[in-house]
């Protein structure tokens, strides 16, 4: 069995490279995000009132198996310029140097370090979140449902924007633009 696997490895590596995947086959499954049914949304507060927005473009590299959490990993690259808060003025502010400075740091990165199961169908991912030039550890609890080759994950995590330097100078003041931002992910992925 071991012999056979070793023999097959180069073949698998080529096959997965052709298919656009990086690395050889792992025990945990590779998943492909269904972009149209997946969203990265956030809720911020401005002038004391909550508003919603989303990042419309992101790439996710997902390797996940409930029975191999140690071998699971998720890396998401978020295109900051794809922000949409249904307000053109605000969107152009968000990418400006005072906020995300998308010209200098065009992507935010979410890279998991470990997963743990907290209840059936409920997990927690400990991950490094990088926004601008700041990396901080965050814990994202999420619900996961796998049916056949389709998976749906949903989770929310609240971060403080000022921890990441989002809001420079006068915008470090959080009285008008709130510090807490809740990020909500809704991911639908297929196992090819």
């Amino acid at each position: 069995m071991f012999q056979m696997k070793r023999k097959m490895l180069p073949v698998l590596a080529i096959a997965t490279t052709i298919a656009g995947f990086s690395g050889a086959a792992l025990a945990a499954d590779q998943w492909v995000v269904e972009a149209n049914d997946s969203e990265i949304e956030f809720t911020g507060t401005q002038l004391g009132a909550a508003f919603e927005g989303k990042f419309e473009s992101f790439e996710a590299d997902i390797v996940f198996s409930p029975d191999d959490l140690a071998g699971s990993s998720v890396e998401v690259l978020i295109d900051i310029a794809s922000v949409n808060t249904s307000n053109g003025d605000r969107d152009s502010q968000i990418v400006s140097p005072d906020w995300f400075d998308a010209a200098q740091w065009p992507t935010a990165k979410f890279a998991t370090k470990s997963f743990s199961e907290i209840a059936p169908g409920k997990y927690e991912a400990v991950a490094d979140l990088t926004i601008r030039d700041v990396t901080r550890e965050v814990t994202l609890p999420f619900d996961l449902e796998i049916e056949g080759n389709k998976a749906e994950a949903e989770g929310t995590v609240t971060i403080n924007r000022t921890d990441f330097g989002v809001g420079q100078g006068q915008w470090q003041d959080t009285s008008q633009v709130g510090d807490a931002v809740t990020i909500k992910i809704e991911i639908e992925a297929m196992r090819p």
């Binding site: 004391g48 009132a49 909550a50 307000n87 053109g88 003025d89």
Partner: peptide, 25 residues
């Protein structure tokens, strides 16, 4: 319309009367 909901003295937030719409705004 600008997706800038109205908070009244920070005590409560009014519901949005219309969905976000740049032209209407």
């Amino acid at each position: 319309a600008a997706n800038f909901p109205v908070s009244v003295f920070g005590m409560f937030t009014l519901p949005n009367l219309v969905s976000p719409n740049q032209e209407l705004f």
